[in-house]
Amino acid sequence: MTTLDIYIDDKPLKVEPGKTILEVCRENDIDIPTMCHLDGLTDVGACRLCLVEIEGVNKLQSSCTTKVSANMVIHTQTERLKRYRRITTELFFAERNHICAVCVANGNCELQQLGYKVGMDHIRYPYLFPSCEVDTSHDYMVMDHNRCIMCTRCVRVCGEVEGAYNWDVMNRGFNVRIISDFNTPWGESGTCTSCGKCMHACPTGAIWPKSLSGEQLHKNPEMISELVKKRKMNL
């Protein structure tokens, strides 16, 4: 098989064509934070955490959606990228009502880990405190929009893996919200199969099982990736 020569952070690498920059980085232990990416789901390039610099390209590119090409020279850890990752993280926290101390996902939250990773010691932007609903209508899961970061992993896993299309996004701009059906309470959805994949795909405490109280939540997003892989294997 042909391979491509590329450079990531000054390190020469031989890689298979067709892979994304993010895939190559993960294979080579180069750490790039992500939120909207989940192995097995279609990438959308929405969270902008995985932005990288590519020499000769004047725009920053999301590594999850950009495929490697021959002689690409990529930088993943420049001061500018680190600064932007931190701003993005702060904007996530300021956008809705993320209060780790009272969150069921405390200690098991990808957003919280991201905060540590990018060295977020405080948030320089005013909290927006939007009024968000908590949908407790489902028999055994809760959707708390206060903790949602609009990564749309639930939307994609529901459509692409489960095939139910219960979730989608309504409105636009700052007013976007995850909806089920016609913005119907989750418990009254006509399409939800109650499979729980969205709960595992969700990186924060936005979707969680009712049976849990604080800090008990353990999610298993890798299960989704495994599921997708096994389906492709056609066992």
């Binding site: 929405a46 993005t88 996530f92 932007y125 996004v169 636009r172 701009g173 700052f174």
Partner: peptide, 18 residues
């Protein structure tokens, strides 16, 4: 721009609001 942002990516959705 804030009103017309589609809301998909964080810099535009939250950044224009800020």
């Amino acid at each position: 721009c804030m009103d017309e942002s589609c809301g998909k990516c964080v810099p535009c959705r939250v950044g224009t609001k800020m």
